[in-house]
């Protein structure tokens, strides 16, 4: 994390990226995203609908693919990491470089797969926000994968935990939240609900898009919360800040744990 020896980090990032951009899964991931984007946007003459489909694809697939791929990658690279660590270089710099290369490759895949078709077919703020959302989610779930990696003893366990995390944030969390909202709908729970949204990076990403696509409807609710919070730039700032926290908190925690991890 400190800036010493950044040339070494650059070197590691460069070569790991060289490996990753020839990785078959990354290539297939990019291709599938591109095919989905082109077909969804091309088939329909209604860009808003295509954008929504891409949002759903993003929210559903980016987290699980990112966390699974990253976790497996970290575990598979253990021996390589050890070799790098036997060189005179700081521990955290090695793992941070690998993380940075990984997020560059995965977000690169997303940006190429979804971003470029969007640029040509539906350029606009919504498209930019969608690409930003997908990229942020990639960063978040890579950080979580790194945390899973440093905390788990073996690969099988790590992959299991990664799947559970992805499923929890994709489906289970919202289920619990809607149950909460239903049960306490008679009470002023607006603030609590916004607070709870911050606990799920996927929801935060979705809210970012909601603020683009549905701000007109959000303005229609008389609740002060919706207007003050979601109907103003504050909502965007809040969501992005929380997502960045979701990137950095697990990342820094993982780096700290890795400092004393036995390989």
């Amino acid at each position: 994390m400190n800036g010493a020896n950044t040339p070494q980090m650059k070197t590691i990032i460069k070569y790991v990226l060289v490996d990753l951009i020839r990785n078959r899964i990354i290539l297939v991931y990019t291709a599938i995203l591109a095919v989905l984007a082109v077909s969804v946007l091309g088939l329909d003459d209604n860009p808003a609908k295509g954008l929504l489909s891409l949002l759903n694809i993003t929210l559903l697939f980016v987290p699980i693919i990112t966390i699974l791929f990253s976790t497996i990658y970290f575990f598979n690279a253990i021996e390589f990491t050890e070799l790098l660590l036997s060189q005179p270089i700081k521990r955290q710099q090695v793992i941070l470089s690998e993380y940075l290369a990984l997020v560059s490759a995965l977000s690169g895949a997303y940006i190429v797969g979804i971003g470029i078709p969007l640029l040509f077919l539906v350029s606009g703020t919504e498209s930019l926000v969608l690409v930003a959302t997908g990229t942020l989610l990639t960063l978040v779930f890579s950080s979580l994968a790194l945390l899973v990696f440093v905390k788990s003893k073996d690969k099988t366990k790590g992959i299991g935990i990664a799947i559970i995390i992805a499923l929890f944030f994709t489906v289970l969390f919202d289920g619990l939240l809607i149950a909460f909202i239903y049960s306490f709908s008679d009470y002023p729970i607006d603030k609590a609900v916004v607070g709870m949204i911050a606990l799920n990076p996927i929801d935060l990403g979705r809210v970012l898009m909601l603020l683009q696509l549905d701000v007109a409807v959000l303005m229609g609710y008389s609740g002060a919360l919706f207007k003050k919070f979601l109907g103003s730039p504050l909502g965007n700032v809040f969501s992005v800040t929380c997502m960045l926290l979701w990137v950095f908190v697990p990342l820094i925690a993982a780096l700290r744990i890795f400092r004393n991890k036995d390989l």
């Binding site: 929210l59 289920g175 609900v193 898009m209 409807v217």
Partner: peptide
């Protein structure tokens, strides 16, 4: 959302 406006925050989720 007509009945429970705050549920709007979950709009467009998988659920």
């Amino acid at each position: 959302t007509e009945r429970i406006p705050v549920a709007m925050i979950l709009y467009r989720s998988f659920l």
